[in-house]
Structure formats: structure tokens, C-alpha cells
């Protein structure tokens, strides 16, 4: 019987973001949300371990109350229970504050064998929360896992670094961050979705998990956002048309010579 907690972030669906073309401001307010991509890989991996060894998978989220909808998907994939740690005072928390909230919540939820996180979240892509959480809890950490094995009280994982790939081992309880390559997340069946509507989503406010108000939100954060702007992207968008591939290619070649980007 294993207990695995998966940290699931409700992220902005970056493929559906809109930009105000006049100001280059990115419109995040009403942007659609979804489970951060790699967190689905983390969920899938946790569920596979559970299917093999038996046990429980809990998903844990710090986010606004409307994250409940997103969490149904985690439950439909196969998580047994979801914890949503939500309080208006959490707004504008950075990775320092978020990892503090997660750590306190996890201590309250109870003992575990593994915590799985995504390599990084799809919207902020900081790869901070997993490592910070492991350090706060004082447990071993293996980052960027693309293969994972749990046996007894030891977890083995493979990961790629820039210059080598490593097989790492640690004693449980441990925290592992996973990459997209570790598996293909399942798409829940209709049955699974229906069953998920009966599963429990535990909602905790700050006080329920002994979270100190001065350590969260803007005042508990170490970094502050000044602005978020879309990068400049002005391209010519000239479509080259030719009767044959050869003709198109010749026109393109001429244009590139005129641009001065080839043939020094």
C-alpha cells in the first residue's frame, strides 16, 4: 500500500492567451485554465504505481476556489481524493510562498511515500516549487525523471542532464519531478468522469492547515511582478508562390540574397 501525493497546479492555458496588440499587455484575467501539462504526467505516473502496488493517490493544489473544476479531471484520471488549499490571502504568492503553503498542507494531510511534481509548470515554467518543497520537507529529491520505479522503501529514477543521463536512487519518502517523456497521460473514460463526480474534494483555508498569513500572498513573497508584456514579433509574412517547387525555390533564394542573409 503506497501513498502518493501529486502537486497539481491549475495553470493558464498558454495556447489560448490573448494579447492586447496596442499595449502588448498579455490578458491573463479571463484566460482559460487547465491542469499544467507535466502535472498530468505526474498524475499518470502516480496512478500507474498505484495500479501496480495498490494504495492511494491524492492530488494537492494551491489555487483559487474555481480550481475545483480542474481538479475533477485529476479525479477522473484516477486520483482518489483532491485537496484544494484556497484562501483569498494567497493571491499573488510567489514560489517561496506557494511552496510554504504546499509544505504545510502536506504535513497536515499525513505520511506519504512519494510526492510527484511536474518538471515545471506550463505558465510560469520556473521549476522552483518542487525543489523548494523537497527542501522544506527535508526529503530526497530527484528532478527531471523520465522513468521511475518504486520498490520497497527505495525509488529509482532516470533523468537526463545536459552532459549525461543518470540513474538515481533515494529512500522514500522522496519527491520526484517528472518530464513529459515519462508517460502518455490517459484520457478519462465517460465512466471515470462520472465516478469522479462522487469523489471528495477537500477544501482548506489558510487556518485549516496552520498557514501563517504573513508568509503568504504579496507580503509573504520575495519577488514581485512589475509587468508582463508580449515580446515584439513583427514579421514580413510574404508568401512566395510559384508554379513549381523549383520556381518557388528560385524566388525564395533571390529574396534571401536581397535580404543580405546569405552569401557574405
Amino acid at each position: 500500500m503506497v501513498r502518493i501525493f501529486v502537486c497539481v497546479k491549475q495553470a493558464v492555458d498558454v495556447s489560448q492567451l490573448k494579447v492586447d496588440s496596442a499595449t502588448r499587455r498579455v490578458i491573463t484575467l479571463d484566460a482559460p485554465k487547465k491542469i499544467s501539462d507535466f502535472d498530468k504526467n505526474a498524475l499518470e505516473e502516480a496512478i500507474r504505481v498505484k495500479e501496480k502496488l495498490g494504495g492511494e493517490v491524492f492530488s494537492v493544489t494551491v489555487g483559487p476556489e474555481d480550481a475545483k473544476t480542474t481538479l475533477r479531471e485529476a479525479l477522473a484520471m484516477g486520483a482518489d481524493k483532491a485537496f484544494l488549499i484556497s484562501d483569498p490571502i494567497f493571491e499573488n504568492s510567489d514560489t517561496l510562498a506557494t511552496s510554504y503553503i504546499l509544505a504545510e498542507a502536506i504535513k497536515k494531510i499525513g505520511p506519504f511515500d512519494l510526492i510527484l511534481c511536474g518538471e515545471a509548470s506550463i505558465d510560469s515554467f520556473s521549476a522552483q516549487v518542487g525543489p523548494r518543497l523537497a527542501d522544506r520537507l527535508g526529503i530526497p529529491l530527484i528532478t527531471y525523471a523520465r522513468k521511475l520505479d518504486l520498490e520497497g522503501d527505495a525509488v529509482t529514477a532516470e533523468r537526463s542532464l545536459e552532459d549525461c543521463s543518470q540513474t538515481m536512487r533515494a529512500k522514500t519518502p522522496a519527491l520526484i519531478t517528472v518530464t513529459k517523456e515519462i508517460n502518455e497521460p490517459r484520457i478519462p473514460s465517460l465512466m471515470a468522469i462520472m465516478k469522479a463526480s462522487k469523489k471528495e474534494i477537500v477544501l482548506w483555508k489558510a487556518a485549516d492547515a496552520n498557514i501563517a498569513s504573513e508568509k503568504v500572498g504579496e507580503s509573504g513573497s520575495a519577488v514581485q511582478v512589475l509587468d508582463i508584456l508580449a515580446p515584439k514579433m513583427e514579421r514580413k509574412k510574404i508568401v512566395i508562390k510559384g508554379e513549381t517547387p523549383t520556381e518557388s525555390a528560385e524566388k525564395l533564394a533571390k529574396a534571401l540574397v536581397q535580404e543580405g542573409v546569405i552569401g557574405r
Binding site: 514579421r235 509574412k237 508562390k241 525555390a249 525564395l252 529574396a255 534571401l256
Partner: peptide, 28 residues
């Protein structure tokens, strides 16, 4: 990518790329 490019050729890369190599060789 069409929205991100300066020059766009719509077609099969298996035809366009070799043709581009030929055209560039000639030009250069």
C-alpha cells in the same frame, strides 16, 4: 509558423528543400 515568418513557401518540404538547395547553389 506562417504568422511568425518573413517568407513562407506553402508546399511539400521534400520538394521545396532540395529545389532550394539547387537554386541557392546556382545563385551563389
Amino acid at each position: 509558423i506562417v504568422e511568425m515568418a518573413d517568407y513562407i513557401v506553402i508546399g511539400d518540404l521534400y520538394e521545396i528543400v532540395p529545389a532550394l538547395s539547387v537554386a541557392l547553389r546556382k545563385l551563389l
